[in-house]
């Protein structure tokens, strides 16, 4: 596997707070990597650094061999954990608006994803439930045909049916030969069967970075149970 993302000694400080402390890691082509940890452990900051939205305080980060930024952004789809969708738009308006700002957009995929998610194009975003808005965010991310998807907390704060549909889409959209997915979550139990590898963050530091099946084998425990042990 080629090192798609290479991170060496990454530190990010906000004033005197250390959001990420001396992180080194590598992500190969075609992996699904779970970035795990409780709130405030640095998951979002890590994804934002890779997406080129947050600048490292120190350390070296390359994505597709480049420094994160404009060139890299064309090659990745980043889904923020925030509820950022414009509420006054209809789904159709939102899709048209969002697609204008992004490369490699496939309307055919948008169509298929919205259908799978049971989202009507004519609905106003303001009238969608949280779960439906969560589905819509994922649909927008996977409407882009890019080799790297960064999904920040796609399962948080939404209903069980929506979580289940989102996990189904992750498996359906993933292509081991040409897509890599980084997925942050604190809902480990539901997502863990998807991971090739799990990276645990604690107070901004990386404490575990290992193949998911190796972890289960070595600890005789699910990744969820390891999570509970570490953060409990």
């Amino acid at each position: 596997m080629k090192g798609l993302i290479e991170i060496d000694g990454l530190t990010k400080r906000y004033g005197r707070t250390i959001a990420l402390g001396n992180i080194s890691m590598e992500v190969g082509e075609g992996e699904i990597v779970g970035i795990l940890g409780p709130n405030g452990s640095g998951k979002s900051t890590l994804l934002k650094v890779i997406a080129g939205l947050v600048r490292p305080s120190s350390g070296r980060v390359t994505v597709f061999g480049m420094k994160p930024g404009h060139g890299v952004r064309k090659l990745l789809a980043y889904m923020s954990e925030n509820d950022y969708l414009y509420r006054w738009m209809t789904v159709k308006e939102l899709v048209e608006w969002t697609s204008k700002f992004h490369d490699n957009w496939s309307m055919d995929k948008t169509q298929a994803l919205l259908e799978f998610f049971d989202i009507d194009w004519g609905l106003k975003v303001a009238n969608l439930s949280r779960g439906m808005r969560g589905r819509l965010k994922v649909a927008l991310a996977f409407s882009r045909e890019v080799p790297l998807y960064l999904l920040d907390e796609p399962l948080s704060g939404i209903d069980a049916a929506s979580r289940s549909k989102i996990l189904d889409i992750l498996i359906r959209e993933y292509r081991p030969e040409n897509s890599t997915i980084l997925l942050s979550t604190h809902l480990v139990m539901e997502a863990e069967s998807l991971f090739d590898r799990a990276i645990f963050l604690k107070n901004g530091e990386k404490i575990i970075d290992e193949a998911a099946e190796n972890l289960r084998d070595r600890y005789g425990a699910s990744i969820n149970n390891i999570f509970i042990q570490i953060y409990g």
Partner: peptide, 14 residues
């Protein structure tokens, strides 16, 4: 099978 079982395709492959 990966979609049916909702597991990583690499796991099924293995």
């Amino acid at each position: 099978l990966a979609v049916m079982l909702r597991v990583n395709p690499n796991t099924v492959q293995r």
